[in-house]
Structures are given as structure tokens and as C-alpha cells.
């Protein structure tokens, strides 16, 4: 039977930027065994030589012309912002480094 420990779930939650309560970490890790067993069935099949499908329709080469169209106004762009200043989105201090 597959399983994910509480710490495994905590690592995944950090990667997914979700701060979970201890109770949630524990309950999620206890549910994951069953869920992983269910999804791990994909590994029961012999998939040698099978090509993966990422797009359900065999479409390719879809492009748009390089043409400028009107943008939103800055008021529209910022209309949902939790905080703004100087026509910019105001966010709390950023600790990590950019790529």
C-alpha cells in the first residue's frame, strides 16, 4: 500500500504554497494511502511503446498575428487588487529571490 507521511504532505504543501494546520496535514496523509493506491493502478498496465497524450485533439501550429490590441486600462487592471499604490500592485515584502 502506498502512503505519504505527514512530513511528505508538509513538503508538498510548502511547494504548493499552502500553509496547513497540523490536523489537516495528518488527516490528509491518512487519506493519501487509499487515494494513491487507487491512482497507482495506472502502473498496472504495460505501457511500453505507448505515446503519452497531452492534448486530446491532434491540433498543431496555432498562432496569432503579431498585432497590438488595446490593453486594459490601469484602473481595470488594478480593480481587483487587494492593495495598490502608484498604479502598481502593492504586495508584502518579498523574501525569496527571483529566478
Amino acid at each position: 500500500m502506498s502512503s505519504l507521511s505527514r512530513d511528505d504532505v508538509a513538503k508538498l504543501a510548502a511547494l504548493a504554497r499552502i500553509e496547513m494546520s497540523e490536523e489537516e496535514l495528518v488527516s490528509l496523509s491518512s487519506q493519501f494511502g487509499v487515494i494513491l493506491d487507487a491512482v497507482a493502478r495506472v502502473q498496472e498496465v504495460n505501457l511500453d511503446g505507448v505515446i503519452a497524450t497531452s492534448h486530446p485533439q491532434p491540433i498543431q501550429n496555432v498562432f496569432r498575428e503579431d498585432q497590438v490590441r488595446p490593453s486594459l486600462t490601469p484602473e481595470q487592471a488594478l480593480s481587483g487588487a487587494p492593495a495598490q499604490e502608484e498604479q502598481r500592485f502593492r504586495v508584502p515584502q518579498i523574501l525569496g529571490e527571483a529566478e
Binding site: 502608484e86 498604479q87 502593492r90 504586495v91 515584502q93 518579498i94
Partner: peptide, 8 residues
């Protein structure tokens, strides 16, 4: 910094 301002 205290906070940051973003321009996209």
C-alpha cells in the same frame, strides 16, 4: 524592503 510594488 517593507513592501513591493508590481508593474506587469
Amino acid at each position: 524592503a517593507d513592501y513591493s510594488l508590481l508593474d506587469y
